[in-house]
Write a protein that binds this DNA or RNA. Structure first.
Ligand SMILES: [Mn+2]
Ligand SMILES: [Mn+2]
Ligand SMILES: [Zn+2]
Ligand SMILES: [Zn+2]
Lengths: 130, 130
DNA sequence: TATTAAATAATAATTGTTATTATTTAAACC
DNA sequence: GGTTTAAATAATAACAATTATTATTTAATA
């Protein structure tokens, strides 16, 4: 799914590669630190700019956890569980819910849908045991 | 639905009153400015503390839009449409979706559910016309 | 090759939020 | 009722994430 209208700079390629390898939902800082291993001179502003850019182009997804942005390259429809104690975020899949969400989304009046996010907020197992 | 185990200080009452009157989803700043009309000497820290406190107690709901906290006293199950251009947030109701979301939420393993948020991101009518 | 626009790096500025501390208020106890 | 104690508040400092600015570099275009 390579878009023709996008300029694949070194920085963007490294960011996409990093997100492809990463298991989870890294913050901007995570991406910056990771990409820096290969592009030692990359600026954090470039990471911010390109994460936003790539998200706008639909190549990656942004998910906000407790006020901070996280990213992923997994574009398959899925949901998230987010621990309100430790901030842990995990994927959760329910095809039925994805389907209904999309269906509802497409029928909202006076609104051009871009995406529909379902977040389950609660306390993870580990935090519960404490 | 007045909780007995909560101390209803002037500040808390004013915050709750403000949220009850307000049509929409005010930010902390909005609440601060609003409540200040009556309690001119209230501190912004108190607004922060009490909004968090009241949300934890379940008397109000917090909803995060583009990384900033917003609040509402509408506790009925509902969803939100959020404009990615201007940030406008509006309520949207689908009983079917609320029901399925709750059902799915209750069956997530190793996770103590607190709430399930559905956010529709897109472009509102006004922003679309520009 | 010269011109132009886009992208990047470095860093300053801003914003939303949290932490700290002194003061005030109100409940609990005698 | 007056005293003790804890909770809540006000004021403000500190912090972290993000955005804005500007000079420089890179790449596309003519
Ligand atoms: Mn995910
Ligand atoms: Mn609402
Ligand atoms: Zn946790
Ligand atoms: Zn809009």
């Amino acid at each position: 799914m390579k878009h023709a209208d996008i300029k694949y700079t070194n920085q963007r390629v490294e960011i996409l590669d990093f997100l492809g390898d990463f298991q989870g939902h890294p913050t901007v800082e995570d991406v910056y630190e990771g990409v820096r291993q290969k592009l030692t001179r990359i600026s954090k502003a470039t990471v911010y700019n390109n994460l936003k850019f790539l998200a706008e182009k639909g190549l990656i997804k942004e998910v906000n956890v407790k006020g901070v942005s996280r990213f992923e390259s997994n574009l398959m429809p899925h949901h998230h569980t987010i621990c309100i104690k430790c901030g842990e975020i995990k994927d959760y899949e329910s095809e039925q819910l994805s389907d209904l969400t999309m269906e509802v989304a497409e029928n909202i009046d006076d609104f051009t849908i871009r995406s529909a996010d379902v977040n389950f907020l609660g306390v993870c197992k580990k935090c519960m045991e404490e």
